[in-house]
Design a protein around this nucleic acid. Sequence first.
DNA 1: AGCAGAAATGTGATAAGGTAACATATCCGT
DNA 2: ACGGATATGTTACCTTATCACATTTCTGCT
Lengths: 172, 172
Amino acid sequence: MAPSSKTAPELAAFAAHDHAGCASSTLHRAQAVAQEKGARLTPVRLRALEILLEEHRAMGAYEVLERLAADGFGNQPPVAYRALEFLVETGLAHRVRRLNAFAACMHPGEDHAPVFLICRTCGAVAEAEAEGVRVALMAAAAAVDFTVERATVEALGLCPRCVEAEGAGGAA
Amino acid sequence: MAPSSKTAPELAAFAAHDHAGCASSTLHRAQAVAQEKGARLTPVRLRALEILLEEHRAMGAYEVLERLAADGFGNQPPVAYRALEFLVETGLAHRVRRLNAFAACMHPGEDHAPVFLICRTCGAVAEAEAEGVRVALMAAAAAVDFTVERATVEALGLCPRCVEAEGAGGAA
DNA sequence: AGCAGAAATGTGATAAGGTAACATATCCGT
DNA sequence: ACGGATATGTTACCTTATCACATTTCTGCT
């Protein structure tokens, strides 16, 4: 059997990089952030975050649950949802609504405006920095006296690799 | 009991206005847009759009389905999902992911960058114009060679009325 | 008009995503 | 050690969404 039970077509970032390294360094930063905030990064929560970081892609709650259960934690939906909700609240993970999925935050504690770029072909999800988007959104909201507390910005399209593949194979 | 079978706390725009008027004029524009595009605005589809326009708020697929069924159309989920999907594809309606809901587009055919402002207190949803957000998003995507095809931009927060209410009742 | 293919609809079944509610266990300040 | 707050485990259930397939309706073509 293959190492992962499900095929994992979704690479987190579009550029190749040292997964293990970036995962562990992000994990360390996440732990520091949690401690700073006084947030309790308990075993289930920590493990959930590790799973997201290891896979380095957007994962459904049930998918995370499966892994948690395999590690000896409860195997009921709330187990995963609670851990993930905590991570999102704490800013250690994000929810990708278009995919009904969750992904570890790559910049924990940085107070950023996460924007997700989702490739419709390979499913890869990248967390891009886009302060400008936040600024523009705030301006638009202010224009109608709306107070923004949280924002979801997600773009569906083609990642560099797939746009090339499509351009070559599709038209030509 | 109130005139509507379900409580409808969600006013579409934050400012009061002539619902019936804006609904019917939007509907006419939508029909024109559909014809122009060669999109078949069949009875179910048209009725689904009417329902969204009449209610003038974000509605769940099952909620729309209920109304469609009451009007003599099929009462199975695909009926609603297909009609709604068509409307979204054609740009006559939008999907509000945060609410797992759909809302009629208020500017059909205008090629706009819809941004949804969702009040977490009263549930009102407003479709705001935000060309600047689109521009910023495109720029951020271009920076990593990502090609954007569709974007979802949603902000959760407080509408003018609720921010006032909260400010008064909450703190003070 | 008659026909073939495409598009749309109706329907049943079921998958996937998400919560409510409640009991139990653990942590933390006193 | 005690008591409140926080976290976890578990049962049950609700909502949202999709698949598959039969049937109908539309469209362009001859």
